[in-house]
Amino acid sequence: MSEILRFQDWSDPVPAGDREVVSRLPEEDDGERPPLLFVPGMGHGGWAFTEHWLAHAASRGWPSHAVTPRPGGDLRAQAHDVVQTAAALPRQTVLIGHGTGARVVARALGRYPARAAVLVSPVLDGWAALGAALRGNPAGTIPALFGGPLRFSAKQLFGPGLPAEQAQAHLERIGARPRAELFGRDALPEPVGGPPTLVVGSPDDRVVRRPELDKAAARYGGAPLLFPGMGHYLMLETSWQEPIDAILDWLGKQTPAR
């Protein structure tokens, strides 16, 4: 069921919050391609996309933006920020979320009629992701169950091809202190307008396992687009260009010029 109109939005509105948006625009914008709005996951900012994907998408003619989640914001507030940011862009927007950012996008799709959506390594089932984290890195995960930080290892997040110094530099920028709701399994709304939705991931992801990718893709009526040998962070791997080019090629077919 759509969530465009919800009583909670009237009775308990999301408080105003600063939204940091980073943009990379094509040298020439013919106005035919929809803007892309990238949504990072827990503990991240727009930097996760400005490393590679934002500029590359702009070089291929796509106006590209990344929004940083408000500090301390719950899922409802983050989805609100995504909807407000997308609504402020000049054309109907494509929403692209990574990790828990994909869960935020899935919630935003219940309120914003996106042109299309892409869920990258999506954490839609918090319990499944928590179980994978506990098995793969119990020492770094258990403190998060009691309000402490969630500490990832390079092995959890990246493929073996990423140089150790680069992996460590990325890890030092991640500040994840997860809210309890991220470990939940809340019902996601039906997307407004039925936008085409693509699920992208890796069968070697140690955070979102293959069965979860299959389940997420089936929910949106398709099969996942997979990139073997990569980790959870497709946009930060040495082979980062392969998945973003595949995403842009898919979007080119799904969002023809109007």
Rank of each mutant, 00 (worst) to 15 (best):
E172F: 01
D74K: 08
V67P: 06
P203S: 10
L95V: 03
L145I: 13
S59K: 05
L213C: 11
S239L: 08
P243V: 11
L54Q: 05
Y233G: 10
P122E: 07
L236P: 04
A133R: 15
V192W: 06
L234F: 14
A164Y: 07
G136S: 10
R219H: 07
R135F: 00
A217M: 14
G175L: 14
S202M: 05
Q254T: 00
L134K: 07
W10C: 02
A77F: 02
A77I: 03
T100P: 00
W250S: 13
W47R: 03
G101Y: 05
S59Q: 11
R91H: 04
M230T: 07
T238N: 14
P71M: 01
L188C: 02
V14I: 11
A57W: 03
A169R: 13
G17Y: 03
S202G: 02
A114H: 06
P63W: 04
A108C: 05
Q84V: 11
H170Y: 15
S239C: 07
Y112W: 08
R6L: 13
R258L: 10
R173S: 13
P178I: 00
V199W: 13
A116S: 13
L25K: 05
H80T: 12
L162I: 12
M235Y: 08
W10V: 09
D249F: 02
P189M: 04
H52I: 00
R258N: 04
W127N: 09
A154C: 02
L124I: 14
P178A: 03
G147R: 07
V105H: 02
D9V: 02
D29A: 12
V82T: 04
G97I: 01
L36A: 12
L234K: 13
W240F: 13
V192R: 07
V192Y: 14
A169M: 10
G61K: 07
R219I: 09
G73C: 01
G201W: 07
L248C: 10
G136D: 13
D214T: 13
S2F: 13
L251T: 05
R111M: 09
R115K: 14
A117N: 07
L234P: 12
S239T: 09
V22Y: 11
T238E: 15
W10I: 02
L95R: 01
V14S: 04
A164T: 06
W240S: 09
Q92Y: 00
A154V: 08
V82F: 08
A77Q: 15
G148W: 15
D204E: 15
A218R: 15
G148H: 11
W10A: 11
R107A: 00
L213G: 14
G126F: 04
G193Y: 12
A16C: 02
E20H: 08
N137R: 14
W250N: 04
L182Q: 08
W53D: 06
R24L: 07
R19K: 06
A102L: 03
H170Q: 13
E172H: 11
R185M: 11
A55K: 07
R209Y: 01
D30G: 08
F38V: 01
S59C: 00
P160E: 15
G136P: 04
P211R: 09
F227E: 08
V118Q: 09
T50N: 08
